[in-house]
């Protein structure tokens, strides 16, 4: 189950932030290309959900359908309980949108554009505060086309949150940011979550998803192929590994017998041993006692937990996407 942030305000009985079932989207009419292919996704309120997926997986398409930009070819989409197309007028004031790129008049100044966006909302966030938080102070009078790529990203992020939305969609909010700006963005997302804003973001950075997300959905080929907390995803699916070093040429058969069925034991290089399977305290104890029985002092014993990146590559393969 996706976790929700403790203490975030939730309207009792309110609909999930996003509920997508069987979403299909094809582009082009002559030889249609399926961008989203039966995607199911539920986003609980009040947490951060990260959509991960290779280039062209269908993340932006999915997000933009939720924002009401495109109509699904099949399936249903509800955002805050509303139909993003039919109920657009009611939905739009409640959501914040950061597009994957663009969205600002090339001749508009950063601060001017942010103030303007604020003026379209009833009760916006204090603009100078937001400018300071995102480090846009030094470029407030710079026109958009003269901002650096990272500054443009930060302005777009500020525009997405300035209206105090209940739900924000951030399409690759940290693409092209320097480490400082990335951390500022992460802090902002964490604060949104603390303040009870639901956040849906897409990213190619596994550490970002691990750091920020309560819930991760991995999308490939237009479908959600795995969903869960970062922890759940790292535990499940791919196996974990335990390594130790000792005397070369130990007989591993007895160790293999002592371990659960699904484990494997190998000596990839002389004196360096590798055990795969469910790495838990029980396994560690089994390995340690086997070593004791064999008079081996295991050196450099190390548990290798899979990172989200391992899981991601395991699930989506290593091929480049077109």
């Amino acid at each position: 189950m996706p976790s929700t942030s403790p203490g975030s305000p939730r309207t009792p009985g309110s609909a999930p932030a996003v509920e997508v079932t069987g979403l299909v989207k094809r582009y082009g009419s002559r030889s249609p290309k399926t961008a989203v292919d039966g995607l199911d996704l539920t986003v609980a309120r009040g947490g951060v959900t990260a959509l991960l997926g290779p280039n062209g997986a269908g993340k932006t398409t999915t997000v933009e359908i939720c924002e009401g930009y495109r109509r699904p070819d099949a399936g249903t989409v509800r955002v805050l309980g509303l139909d993003p197309v039919a109920d657009a007028a009611r939905l739009r004031p409640r959501i914040g949108v950061m597009l994957q790129s663009g969205g600002v008049y090339s001749g508009a100044r950063a601060e001017e554009m942010l103030r303007h966006t604020a003026s379209l909302h009833a009760d916006p966030v204090d603009v100078p505060l937001l400018i300071e938080r995102l480090g846009l102070g030094s470029c407030g009078r710079t026109t958009y086309r003269r901002l650096s790529g990272g500054q443009q990203q930060r302005l777009a992020l500020a525009m997405a949150v300035v209206g105090r939305p209940e739900l924000v969609f951030l399409d690759e909010p940290t693409a092209g940011l320097d480490p400082q700006a990335r951390h500022a963005t992460w802090d902002l997302v964490r604060e949104l979550r603390t303040d009870g804003v639901s956040v849906v973001l897409t990213t190619h950075f596994m550490d970002e998803a691990e750091q920020l997300a309560d819930d991760v959905a991995i999308i490939d080929g237009g479908r959600v192929i795995a969903q869960g907390t970062p922890d759940e995803l790292c535990r499940g699916g791919a196996e974990n590994t335990l390594r130790f070093t000792g005397r070369p040429g130990l007989d591993l058969a007895s160790l293999r017998k002592a371990l659960p069925e699904d484990s494997t034991t190998t000596e990839p290089s002389p004196g360096s041993y590798r055990v795969t399977g469910t790495v838990d305290p029980q396994m560690l104890a089994t390995v340690a006692s086997w070593c004791a029985q064999n008079g081996v002092l295991p050196d450099a014993i190390a548990v290798e937990r899979h990172t989200l990146e391992d899981v991601f590559l395991d699930l989506t393969g290593k091929e480049l996407r077109g």
């Binding site: 975030s8 004031p93 409640r94 001017e112 303007h116 003026s119 204090d126 105090r164 303040d195 804003v197």
Partner: peptide, 26 residues
């Protein structure tokens, strides 16, 4: 939760006249 943070949701459109005036000025 009663405490209000910087981003505590308070969504809503500005009055239509104000939006159009702001947009026209921009």
């Amino acid at each position: 939760m009663t405490a209000t943070g910087t981003f505590t949701p308070r969504p809503g459109a500005a009055p239509l006249g104000r939006m159009i005036r702001a947009q026209a000025a921009l």
